[in-house]
Design a protein around this nucleic acid. Structure first.
Lengths: 342, 342
DNA sequence: CGAGTCTAGTAACACGTGTTACTGTTAACA
DNA sequence: TGTTAACAGTAACACGTGTTACTAGACTCG
């Protein structure tokens, strides 16, 4: 029924030139001598046939696929709750589309990391953005050694893989400093994830730093691990609520986890911020609409995605990056889950 | 530095066979006579060289890219709040990866719909899943006419484009019926989006149906439009709260929009569900953790994505679908934003 | 023992593009 | 008038794979 797609040959025939000329004109190759009249004819022919170069032919010839892969190392269950990812995604996709790149998405869990290396060994993508890297991933190191462009969202220790991350440690420190400044001395913490995740470790470090600098003793019984989900926050907070004396404030390194924790607090009859104050992290879209609205640390999610995409593409195009990694600033957001007192 | 990627020629040389044989063996072509010994040699050579066929070469030769495009017709701002999309995405991606397909993501806004047709005219993808279709999209119709495999998430009127959707209308009706059954007579509504979106119209229809069947007069002053965001819900509810007498319950066709609306209610000093009851839609992950936990209609988001991906791939593979469109069931979820009374 | 069939494998073409090295023509210049 | 240089465009190769049509030998069977 539908006619065969037009190829560059068809355009060449219609314009009365060679296929080479068509390619040169349509790709705007500089430093090549084609008369203005011929150029017009080629453009007109292409338009008339509704010609669009075939992506695979192009890719095969040039070796470039103009596609980047976004690989998300997480289980399906975890990703359900990660509102943050969507904003990052939009950032990546926006810069990619600006530069004429496509974005391929892949969720995989930790058990089979070699799944994503396939993306690149098959030349399906020119490079990958890896979100949620583990501290130890030999397959990733192999790809990096082979010269595959990789951009980490987050960081890996002992590695020179380029990355884009957020100043999570200083963000946490700022949050906890704020709690200290308004008078808290006994401050609990729930992590956003297990400590194998670099982001979890960083956020915990900020908490430790703030307490240490303020000469407050660290109490391990007040530190619990969350695991991305509200449910994990609920359980963690239940544990913390068993301690005595209770902390007067809890820093929860993820808004999503905090939501479960808050439910546990309400269920136990305590009020926020009157009985216990809560400080979150991420500034998820919902944080400002929650009850109470969450004091939190805003992550520049969109900017993070944008920067990662931008830098990866520059890497792919062969540019040299000035810095191996960049760290974006966080922002302190004060709302009603903490008291406003000075 | 890094050696050239191995090609099928390298494998053939190492195994001492022709390139054709390599291709036949590695692709498990049935009905072809290759001895077991030779097969072993080929597999071993491929493994030893870490050979992976080049995606573009393959695509060029076969004409199939084994990639599907997920196109999201929405502005960046709207997508920020759409937690639902992520679950759909996971469903699509899971079935795709099972069948050996990749998923390409593209957000575009309504102004330039031809952007996604490019995906397919360049043969970048074998087919597309279109989320959030408008009621009128000539470019889409053109692609469909040309035989491009398309799967709609949602529906388009007057069209035979295959789709996967949710029984939104009956879901809404169920929700409003429940409100009626527990004694409400004056029930407001806030839509999830502008009525140009088919999903918005469907959900509103369910509301109308329920009221009509119960012989309750429709009061247009109690129906307001939301627009995906909590902020829009906040404003819409402010409007509704000006009416007199107040509705005793409001059906809000989106949990995310409901969250803004609830804030408006709380701000005005009213309590939920004591003074006014709220019924949501979507069962966003956060709904159960909200305060109060939201009564809502659960959409089978993962299943929706899975079904869309599955059916699109079957279309791409040339299978004939038994039904042009399928509708998935919703589920009534009762929580504490509505009274439990019978 | 000759004709046919089955086995194991290959040569050769097709897919659609990017790009380099080359040709033929015209203009400039000493 | 002969040598260069600029101009306008092309022929031909490369990219890596899928697939069809074919061949050469071994085996079967009457």
């Amino acid at each position: 029924m539908s006619a065969r797609r037009p190829t560059s040959v068809d355009v060449a025939l219609l314009a009365g030139v060679s296929r080479t000329t068509v390619s040169l004109v349509l790709n705007h190759i500089p430093k090549v001598n084609i008369s203005e009249a011929t150029r017009k004819r080629v453009f007109e022919a292409a338009r008339q046939l509704n010609y669009h170069p075939d992506a695979s032919g192009r890719k095969l010839a040039s070796g470039k696929s103009k596609t980047i892969g976004l690989v998300r190392l997480q289980s399906s269950e975890q990703v359900f709750n990660d509102a943050f990812l969507l904003q990052v995604l939009v950032g990546i996709e926006q810069v990619a589309s600006q530069r004429g790149f496509h974005v391929l998405l892949k969720h995989i869990n930790h058990s089979n990391t070699n799944e994503y290396s396939q993306l690149v060994t098959e030349n399906f993508v020119d490079g990958i953005i890896l979100s949620g890297p583990l501290q130890n991933d030999p397959e990733l190191m192999r790809l990096h050694q082979e010269g595959v462009p990789i951009m980490l969202l987050g960081q890996m220790a002992n590695t020179d893989i380029p990355f884009v991350d957020v100043k999570a440690e200083s963000g946490s420190e700022t949050a906890v400093n704020h709690l200290i400044s308004i008078g808290h001395k006994r401050i609990g913490m729930i992590t956003n994830a297990k400590l194998e995740y670099s982001s979890a470790q960083q956020r915990k470090n900020g908490y430790i730093n703030a307490l240490t600098k303020a000469n407050i003793q660290i109490d391990d019984r007040l530190i619990k691990e969350g695991d991305f989900t509200p449910a994990s926050g609920f359980l963690a907070m239940k544990e913390i609520l068993k301690s005595s004396p209770l902390p007067s404030a809890v820093f929860i390194a993820s808004d999503v986890v905090a939501i479960g924790a808050i439910q546990a607090i309400k269920q136990s009859g305590l009020r926020i911020p009157r009985d216990i104050e809560i400080f979150g992290f991420d500034d998820v879209p919902m944080a400002q609409y929650y009850d109470p609205p969450l004091s939190t640390i805003r992550l520049p999610a969109f900017d993070l995605g944008w920067a990662a995409g931008d830098r990866l593409i520059r890497l792919i195009l062969g540019e040299k990056l000035d810095l191996n990694g960049i760290l974006l600033d966080t922002e302190l957001i004060l709302r009603e889950s903490t008291s406003q007192a000075v």
